[in-house]
Write a protein that binds this DNA or RNA. Structure first.
Lengths: 96, 96, 96, 96
DNA sequence: GTGGTCTAGACCACG
DNA sequence: GTGGTCTAGACCACG
């Protein structure tokens, strides 16, 4: 997937955050399973490792994922989070 | 190099534009290579960052350079540009 | 000030966090005033900008400072935080 | 270069140690310069990271190299080391 | 001239 | 072979 690097867009890490968040909410990455490694995400999105980690730092802050050295990054159990549900709903509606 | 900041002169950014343009046209900065960083140019010409960026903005507009965040500023492939040729000719004549 | 970069020590950013935290708690950097810039801290401690920012990110998370683009980093109003008071006390006692 | 992984051979890390040591002593990797990265050595010799690091740990112990996080691995100034001289001599004799 | 973002790429600590 | 730390240094956005 290609992110927009033109000026006027959100920063790359923020765009990546949005993509990963929606994949988690949509179950592309399932609870308790591992996310693709930082290396894979670098390649898939064509960004540097720092950018990947910046997006992940925010996902940790949102309590969506957790990192484990030597193991990988796992998707946490979802709690009902109304704000996220609302955003997801918006996204779905926009696609129609 | 010292730019003229007395009144009656062209604005600093415009003088800087001229210098950078001529260096590109003369091959001091070669096609495909990186320009000195904004920091270096600030020091070399004793001007502020805003001035450097103002000059560079015009060079981008003239399609002489291109900026890439985290990478640097590169000199674009020259296409025949009659206006520039004319200016270059003037410059050469002045030196004689 | 020199940080310890030998293996077996805490990471540099963590050591830097401790120093900055204690300076804030001791009033070396006062409430509402600006911290030294990232550039200054890089020089004072001989670390890279990323390391300085990593320490600062944690200080933001602890609600001790706040960053403002184009302005600088300011020390927030202290609230009584018992955990920090306790650590400070320990530090003072250790020095005796 | 291919290392021997058949039984009866020295361990991989030890073979790798020998190769790297000889390259340093022969000046393939020169004093004060950086060694190829761990990643490069993994690929060149078709071994795992652990093996590369095991060989390097021994080179550090022999005071032939020094690692610096974020910088790389550099070749130290050689002091006269009789044991190494002896091994080097053996190597030269074997080639004849 | 500050903090914000980004690149490329190294070694470290843990499995 | 993952995530953790670190370096050096670029341009960007805001004053």
């Amino acid at each position: 997937m290609k992110l927009q690097s033109q000026s006027g867009e959100k920063p790359l890490w923020s765009q990546l955050y949005d993509v990963l968040e929606s994949r988690i909410l949509n179950g592309v990455y399932k609870e308790g399973e591992v996310l693709p490694s930082e290396m894979s995400l670098m390649e898939e999105f064509g960004v540097s490792r720092v950018t990947v980690r910046q997006a992940m730092d925010k996902l940790i802050h949102s309590k969506l994922i957790s990192r484990k050295r030597g193991k990988g990054t796992i998707v946490l159990k979802k709690k009902v989070q109304w704000k996220l549900c609302f955003n997801l709903l918006l996204m779905v509606l926009k696609k129609k």
